[in-house]
Design a protein around this nucleic acid. Structure first.
Lengths: 183, 183
DNA sequence: AAAAAAGTTAAATAAATTCTTAACAAACTT
DNA sequence: AAGTTTGTTAAGAATTTATTTAACTTTTTT
């Protein structure tokens, strides 16, 4: 009897690992470290976990689990929970992919918009200075103008990306693209 | 006179490099290799380039440029052009960020949906077998059911992501989020 | 307040990735 | 058709990144 239990439990484990592998591989591709990716995928099938449980389950060092779980908290895919009785910290994975993955993209995109727009603004100022510089030859002025305009046009994309982030954060995008649309 | 030309040309180079650095760093963060990221950012300010020009400009090996440009072609951020007169291959960067970055995300997301849905379908079959297995204890059946339902619910996300890709590919998303919205 | 347990930081090791050198294949010229 | 130029493949070197071990800090308990 308990023999059969073991076999069916093993089948459940096997099934979970198929999904864990796929989730972790995907996160890997998006630049999340393997330890953090595996950890999130594992936690996806758990109610909550302590650092020691993570270490045992993934057979990795405690500092690795510590930094991984912190990284996952930063991208809002894991949250700390307070469990009375235990003095160990407990963590839960965000099981709603809409929330976890969207938090990830919004953060990435916001960073991209901020950094790139800052660089663009600085560069455009430089180009303006070259254009206004009386010692610049007509050729050089034309070159500076060309680049200035190219950058100016690219801003449209960054503003759009910012709007996309906003519509995801506010949930407005789901008015356009419903969650439960069955095809 | 030509001294002043050099100075203004240097200022233009400096301005370009600010933007090149920002673009390359962003692509780096999205998992594109440094060589490919730098190459695209450099090509963003060029009409077209040959492999030798890339090597000279980035001071890197030719095979590195060859593999980098191929990777950029795969994600549709660079296209090959036929230049008569020259027997060297010439390449142009996609300068429209809407096209280049969206090609990148759509490819990533489509892969994510396909791989993860495949793993989910397989896992769900396994869970059904455990549920139907007459030797499974009630506890194990309940466990398998719980995971099955969790996976079933997650499909909503992947279908939504698929719809997002479709609305980007078709351009329909720009009806909801216009490109030229000025704030 | 002292001791023990939990978690983090920092340095060092291990692993993986990226890039280069060298050999090869393909295409174009004369 | 032979030679030259261009581009690619494959193996090795080097850099970078990820993980572990060890020392330290913080928190909790008695």
């Amino acid at each position: 009897m308990s023999e059969s239990n073991e076999r069916t439990e093993a089948k459940i484990e096997e099934a979970k690992y198929k999904v864990i592998g796929a989730i972790a591989e995907t996160m890997d591709l998006y630049g999340v470290t393997p330890a953090a990716a595996n950890l999130y995928a594992t936690m996806y099938f758990k109610d909550q976990m302590t650092l020691d449980e993570m270490r045992t389950e993934l057979e990795m060092s405690k500092p690795s689990m510590s930094t991984s779980v912190r990284r996952l908290q930063e991208i809002e895919m894991v949250k700390k929970t307070f469990t009375r009785g235990s003095r160990k910290h407990t963590y839960v994975a965000e099981k709603n992919f809409f929330r976890s993955f969207m938090a990830f993209y919004c953060q990435m995109w916001e960073r991209e918009v901020k950094m790139n727009l800052e660089a663009i603004e600085e560069a455009q100022e430089d180009f303006i200075n070259v254009i206004k510089d009386s010692t610049s030859t007509p050729d050089i002025v034309a070159e500076a103008k060309k680049y200035y305009d190219q950058l100016e046009e690219s801003k449209t994309y960054y503003h759009w990306l910012d709007d996309l982030v906003e519509s995801i954060r506010s949930g407005k995008i789901f008015e356009f693209l419903p969650k439960d649309k069955q095809d």
